[in-house]
Design a protein around this nucleic acid. Structure first.
Lengths: 220, 220
DNA sequence: AAATTAATTTAGGCATACCTAAATTATATA
DNA sequence: TATATAATTTAGGTATGCCTAAATTAATTT
């Protein structure tokens, strides 16, 4: 059995790798809020377990075995987020922290039952895809809201899950995945977006907009 | 924050204390399947935290602060057992092991939501009382099934929760808490019990009967 | 090519929680 | 009372995972 820390490393490596970044010891340490030396030690350990490979130029790369575990943890996390939200009514800005600890201890049996209860869902409350039992991830193309222009409409696809203040803010505007909105105006010089959501007007700052991924963009 | 191990010690001390036994280092070690030296070390630690007192003659005693924590963990455990069984359909012989790890990581928020979902229940799937938020335990008087005589009827009050093979066995006879049955016959020389449950006849061995607590005993 | 800067690794420490084995302290029994 | 037995504690060792600080290696820049 892997330790919780090791699982967190694999999950983080997967996420960084997904972004297309080369996963250096330092980048990994920063992501995990840990000193580079600690990351270095864990990298050595995961390497001996054949869960990652490491080369100075390439950085860390997950092996197939490593990917499998990373995806399993991510699946646990996202399924838990959705379950806590749907079954227990935990607000979407609170599910991440809860899932962060439960993901390491939940059994396959309980997970399977939550999965069935939820009807084998494919995305979590923040719009992130939930890998299936075989680790297959359903990818969707989306673009950051910052690339939108005036009078374009779109659907919220995904938002960051780890900043609860941001999530509460988005929740106030009903900016959940699946919600449709139209850009009324984009202020010049990198200014904020004014949008229309179900008849309601809202102003969304640039920094916030960066964290909102959208799709189904249409000119109106 | 206490460690998981420390919480397990407090919980175990509470349970042993509840039985009226004097909680010696050795008894505690045996209960936790740990060497006496390990228990000795933890006792020292818990003592410095003022969660227990210790005297050679008396053994370990929980302080008020220690009791509070023990009851909180027990509440987590039993509420989780009931939730897993009711909300997710985990069979009653499987909930103990699941709860054993979750009890240490579940948040107060999630617990409160499970509690509300279940309608503020007072006993778990095995009939054990669930302490309320303030640590108040609703006590019920019950006697071991082994004290019953022929033609007495009774209601199952509580069964041990940690032996899954036993629980599966009892489940086969529908011997869940709340179930009524009548003793048809008690074989002589410490022999097995023949009982009637909803018209069905079943033979229950003495060793098994020891683990079944009953109440509402009536002569028929 | 040499020197500066950045990234990485090693070395040494801390805390938790477990273990075994030996020493100690109580409690019975003869 | 002295000895045997049982219970308990101490001492020393394991492993994990974190830390800081120093040493090393690689990549830039001059």
């Amino acid at each position: 059995m892997l330790t919780q820390a090791a699982e967190d490393y694999l999950k983080s490596i997967y996420k960084l790798q997904e972004k297309g970044e080369k996963v250096s010891t330092g980048a990994l340490a920063e992501y995990l809020d840990v000193k580079p030396a600690s990351a270095s030690g864990m990298i050595k350990k995961l390497k001996t377990m054949n869960l990652i490979t490491y080369e100075r130029s390439e950085g860390v790369t997950l092996t197939d075995a490593g990917s499998e575990i990373a995806l399993e943890i991510i699946r646990h996390h996202r399924l838990l987020e959705l379950y806590l939200n749907q079954a227990l009514g935990v607000p979407w800005d609170g599910v991440h922290d809860e899932a962060e600890v439960l993901e390491h201890v939940i059994s396959e049996e309980v997970e399977a039952r939550m999965d069935a209860y939820l009807g084998y869902p494919t995305s979590d409350p923040h719009g992130s895809p939930i890998p299936d039992k075989n680790g297959v991830v359903q990818q969707t193309e989306s673009i950051p809201m910052t690339e939108l222009h005036s009078s374009q409409s779109c659907v919220v696809a995904e938002v960051s899950d780890d900043d609860s203040a941001l999530l509460r803010h988005l929740g106030n505007f009903n900016l959940y995945p699946g919600t449709t909105f139209t850009v009324i105006d984009v202020a010049p010089f990198e200014g904020p977006f004014t949008i229309d959501i179900a008849g309601q007007e809202a102003v969304i700052g640039r920094e916030v907009a960066k964290h909102i991924m959208v799709n189904n963009v249409k000119d109106t």
